[in-house]
Nucleic acid binder design. Structure first.
Lengths: 241, 241
DNA sequence: CTGCCACTTTGATTTCGATCAAGTGGGGGA
DNA sequence: TCCCCCACTTGATCGAAATCAAAGTGGCAG
């Protein structure tokens, strides 16, 4: 496919992108069809199974990605092994750190995921060419900043019970965004990961989930499948009135 | 001063801006002299004394600002009064939330401060016209996101001792950036504020400062003035090797 | 079916930081 | 000058979550 052909087909979009969930909310939604074709020529779609690292803390990053399916956890680790999950990325979030060549954190698939990755320089150039693209990434960064700061309130000031309820509420509203008052979903994180997200131990997480179950705020099947009959009640348990 | 005169004086910059500390690192550094003149025509420089609110959580924000002097604390509050400081802004940081009309947090002067504020629509327009300006704000947002995530590790996984040491180390490196291995500075925050930043009570903060003093890692005069003879040692106490 | 392994739950005890309660000291106003 | 107020420190006790320990679960390879 040479340049002439590409131009003729400008109004087309690559076949793999047509049904891609990331194309609307994600970065690709800000690209022209020509840019989409070019980016697609260099992009790699791949499955990453749960537990596999996507980029490591301190590593040089030469590719950006979009999350297409599944949940990616972003974490920081201290030298003695203490770990903190600092963010979760869902489809169609952008994965990468503009303006910096070293990753400041580890990105790891929390569930089986699918990502679409592309070389840094190509996207960097497109950002320079396309204000709408820079704007979208800027906007996502600010949203992530708001989320991080909300989470700081949870980490610093909430009780274990409120932390676990906050976590479940956050997952419920992200995984199952339609349902207004009740929700049902599979937890994307193990108890250990939930502990690392909330700054708690695995035992405390387990005990608090049991308490919320006994209070009738949630029901749990097979350890991972959670039903929330009343989201407002869960949100109250999370300390958010 | 009409448009013709402004253009003639393009190579000039407004008098008040000439010695302004925010003009180089801050947003104004990305503006042409014409833009600087225009922005200056609508901007207000003002003193805000310690403890005064600049914007409130949930408030509509019609002006952005630059911090010229002093320290501004960003905080979130729960309905029952529990509070968490989620960030500190130093000169020449930008203060405001692009793309959103409600402030998601409270900004309050921690020390006596000076800020330069200007109407939202004017800066929004300049951002659209000047890629370099958008780039700078994007870059600051990503830096704040990195800082917030570092702080999440501190909040979630460090002990009280490490938290207080981390706080002192952060302040030392921000206030007194030159000195490589030792530092001396006034704490910009009260014990209560430090507690709200670290997710601790005022008593615990006080006890940990006393311990660090007894270990010889810091010396304190008049409760506020701190000297750190060996920054590396403080950083080790903060859990960062 | 059996046994193993990873994950989770539950229970007993300890510990760190919160809470409750004085006490100190410096600066400003009457 | 005195005294009051406020920010901070220090001490005693309490309690929530960590730690230590053991006992389920459930999936899966053999």
């Amino acid at each position: 496919m040479d340049v002439a052909r590409k131009d003729i087909h400008n109004s087309q979009i690559p076949v793999v992108c047509r049904s891609c969930e990331a194309r609307h909310g994600g970065v690709c939604g800000a690209l022209s069809s020509g840019q989409l074709i070019e980016l697609n020529r260099h992009s790699v779609r791949r499955e990453v199974s749960a537990g596999c690292e996507i980029v490591g803390q301190g590593e040089a990053v030469c590719r950006y990605s979009s999350v297409l399916r599944g949940v990616v956890k972003l974490s920081k680790m201290m030298s003695d092994g203490r770990q903190q999950i600092v963010g979760l990325q869902f489809s169609p979030d952008f994965l990468g750190r503009l303006f910096l060549h070293e990753s400041t954190l580890t990105a790891e698939a929390a569930t089986d995921t699918e990502i679409c990755s592309f070389p840094r320089p190509i996207l960097d150039r497109m950002i320079a060419e396309t204000p709408e693209l820079g704007h979208r990434l800027h906007s996502q960064a600010l949203q992530e900043l708001d989320d991080a700061r909300d989470w700081m309130l949870t980490l610093g000031r909430k009780t274990a019970q409120e932390k676990v309820a906050s976590f479940l509420y956050m997952i419920a509203t992200h995984i199952d965004p339609d349902s207004a008052d009740c929700a049902t979903f599979d937890l994307p994180l193990s108890r250990a990961d939930i502990g690392d997200f909330l700054g708690l131990t695995i035992e405390t997480v387990s005990r608090q989930i049991t308490k919320l179950r006994k209070l009738g705020i949630i029901t749990v099947e097979n350890n991972r499948h959670v039903t929330v009959p009343d989201l407002d009640r869960l949100n109250t348990a999370a300390g958010n009135d």
